[in-house]
Amino acid sequence: MLEQDLEKIFQNKIDNEIKIEPKDWMPDAYRKTNIRQISQHAHSEVVGMLPEGNWISRAPSLKRKAILIAKVQDEGGHGLYLYSSAETLGIGRDEMINDLHIGKAKYSSIFNYPSLSWADMGAIGWLVDGAAILNQVMLCRTSYGPYARAMVRICKEESFHQRQGFESLLVLSRGTDEQKAMCQDAINRWWWPSLMMFGPKDSESTNSDQSMKWKIKRKTNDELRQQFIDMIAEQIKVLGMTLPDDKLKWNEKTNHYDFGEINWDEFWNVVKGNGPCNKQRLVAKNKAHDEGEWVRAAAKVYAAKKLNRQKEKAA
């Protein structure tokens, strides 16, 4: 069959909401875009373990400690589900991880910001996970089957992440003056970076949008961002806190909240590696991987030995 016929069949499937599965024919660029997006998503999960993981030892109660451990562990699990689905596209996990470790592959920039107080655990759950969930709910319907299935599983598990974050902030917001200040400070620091998570404005894109056509993405950055702002602007009232944006205002005409300008210079700088924690995050991941090398080698050698012994026994 001619490539253009294959492509037509492929696009037809997508238009008819038929999922693409690993062994189906797909354009090279579709494969590559999916590998890049899924692996970046996976990297975001495992790097995302670090800013929260560093508060596990300091969690202020045993209950909070248990919640936090379970949540950070979930993120590891989600990274694993995502690596698994990318592996169906013909790339090994080791290769993806290597790309991350040498700084070639990217992950969500939000995790290059430091977590400085206990309230950050709540703010990350509420704002960062809240932003991520909007994207992930959309991705449950993405066109590549294994990715969509991983997202369904992830969304099911994630549902407690945002709730626990909000609940933890709620306790702080009703606590002592120091706790209230801690809560407001965390919201102030995480608000703008979480808006940046949705990526640049739609107007910055001049080209036709292949990812939308292929239904890898199904909503634009601005649509998702607006949805997020509308949601958070209401929820913050329950906390009795404020969002650090004096332009934030309900607009009767659009039925949405208006908001101030995002600092895109900061955004691109963090993407390029100049965020407060880019270096530490990569150093930590590299260190863990390098120090695990002998462990992985030993397990592999032992597995081979055991297999040989079984064969000898059988012979």
Partner: peptide
């Protein structure tokens, strides 16, 4: 729990956690 996020491989990171 100090291993969480720093395990030798993702599967074992999850196991020790």
């Amino acid at each position: 729990s100090e291993w969480c996020g720093h395990g030798p491989i993702l599967e074992q990171d999850i196991a020790i956690t």
